[in-house]
């Protein structure tokens, strides 16, 4: 049995070409192994670029558009932030000369914290953002 098994196993041998190919791959993989210097530099560079990009963003409030409600959620009016609360019934409004995004700005009588923007016949009620 020993002889036959030996003979059988002797048939399973890699060729010189195979050995060479495998060794090259092993050595190359070894070289690439580990967290290389260039990855560290690359990571730092990426973080730095992202940080610069964020810090250079315009500080003015950018209107946020909600796809779910199909409304602009926050707007800026006279340097203050207003957020959308819903439709207004159109009563007790006082027209101003201001316009935002093509809509006329109305103020609600007796309320300083809210405005109504009338656009295409719709009364959109905005209130000062929380924390303002």
């Amino acid at each position: 049995m020993k002889e036959r098994i030996k003979k059988s196993c002797d048939q399973i041998l890699p060729t010189e070409q195979q050995k060479k190919k495998m060794f090259e791959i092993i050595v190359n993989k070894k070289k690439k192994r580990g967290f290389q210097k260039r990855w560290i530099i690359g990571s730092f560079a990426t973080v730095a670029v992202i940080f610069i990009f964020i810090s250079l963003q315009p500080k003015e409030a950018v209107p946020k558009f909600s796809i779910a409600r199909m409304r602009i959620e926050t707007i800026e009016y006279k340097g203050k932030c207003y957020e959308y609360v819903g439709f207004h019934n159109g009563k007790n409004l006082k027209r101003t000369n201001d316009q935002i995004m093509g809509g006329i700005v109305y103020q609600i009588k007796g309320q300083n914290s809210a405005i109504v923007i009338v656009k295409n016949g719709e009364y959109q009620h905005y209130q000062k953002c929380r924390g303002e």
Partner: peptide, 23 residues
């Protein structure tokens, strides 16, 4: 390499997988 190759071939039964396992 021959020994490792033989062991791997006994399990995997084909050249490509055996080479991968040896590596």
């Amino acid at each position: 390499v021959n020994m490792v190759y033989q062991i791997c071939f006994l399990y995997l039964k084909n050249k490509e997988d055996t080479e991968d396992a040896v590596q």
